[in-house]
């Protein structure tokens, strides 16, 4: 073993990270070589000095401050809602597509009926109006110059069996693919923005007052920059009440189930349509 090889091994030797045979070889070289002996002594002294260096004093009340900060930090942490909101948006999209399909007489299906069930937590009249701004963070998420009307409102129209929005088929298709892109492309921010914009608008329209327990354990605060009515960036910071959190969560789950079941529901739809045809013809 030459000096270079020995010195390369001094550091792991000090850490006990060399095998027994290799360590013995290094030690043998160091014992015979004055230069390496000095090198080893310096390195050992350095390591000893570092290991003996006093630890910085922990600031008083460190842990308590961390714990006290947890609730407010959960604002960010509860952005875990975002994937749920993303799911909800995806499910809403499916609802839109299905409800649009349902307008075609030969495609009316049980799917539509399912989608038209009352949204969980949404009471009569508190549904989002049509004029809320499209809450999409990335402008590119709605390609092809889709109409500026509310996607959330339109989507919910599918759920609440409201009148279909008067949009051109082509525009609807491109907006749908835009939304699909948002969710499939892992852009939950835009979807979350939609959900927040919806809740924000519901409050402005006389919904429940802002929670007074903002920042407590039971409140999830989320913030998103969304596109305003004229496309300008608008920041929405909402502290969701537990009920609202439940609403978003349940909504997301129920609607996500629609996505998961889409294939089988559509198959069921075709089956039902075919099965009812003879009955219809008999009536005639």
């Amino acid at each position: 073993m030459n000096c270079t090889e020995a010195r390369e091994r001094l550091s792991p030797l000090l850490d006990g990270e060399l095998g027994a045979a290799e360590a013995a070889e290094v030690r043998a070289h160091v014992a015979e070589c004055e230069g390496c002996r000095e090198h080893h002594a310096e390195l050992a002294a350095l390591v000893s000095t570092l290991r003996g260096a006093p630890s910085p004093a922990l600031p008083e009340g460190f842990a308590a401050e961390v714990l006290a900060a947890l609730p407010s930090r959960r604002r960010g942490g509860l952005l875990r809602l975002v994937p749920l909101a993303g799911l909800a948006a995806a499910a809403l999209l499916v609802a839109v597509v299905l409800s649009h399909r349902s307008r075609s007489p030969d495609a009316r299906s049980p799917v539509t009926e399912t989608a038209r069930g009352p949204a969980p937590g949404a009471s009569e009249g508190d549904g989002p109006p049509r004029d809320i701004p499209f809450a999409s963070a990335p402008a590119a998420s709605v390609p092809d110059g889709a109409p500026a009307e509310s996607v959330v409102g339109d989507s919910r129209a599918g759920l609440t069996a409201g009148a279909p929005a008067p949009v051109a088929e082509e525009a609807r298709a491109s907006r749908s693919s835009g939304l699909r892109y948002i969710v499939a492309g892992g852009q939950p921010d835009a979807a979350a923005g939609m959900i927040l914009a919806e809740i924000d608008h519901r409050r402005r329209r006389g919904g429940p007052p802002p929670p007074s327990d903002a920042g407590t354990d039971d409140t999830a605060c989320v913030e998103r920059v969304v596109a305003g009515a004229y496309g300008e960036p608008r920041s929405i910071l909402l502290c969701l009440t537990p009920d609202e959190v439940r609403y978003v969560t349940e909504m997301a789950r129920r609607l996500a189930a629609l996505i998961a079941l889409q294939e089988s529901l559509e198959a069921n739809c075709r089956e039902v349509v075919q099965a009812t045809y003879p009955w219809v013809s008999q009536k005639k």
């Binding site: 000090l14 080893h40 002594a41 310096e42 390195l43 050992a44 002294a45 350095l46 000893s48």
Partner: peptide
Amino acid sequence: RARLAPLLVNRPRGVDR
């Protein structure tokens, strides 16, 4: 080590373990 060498030479030796 290179930066501190002049100060380390008189340090206690035998940290090797």
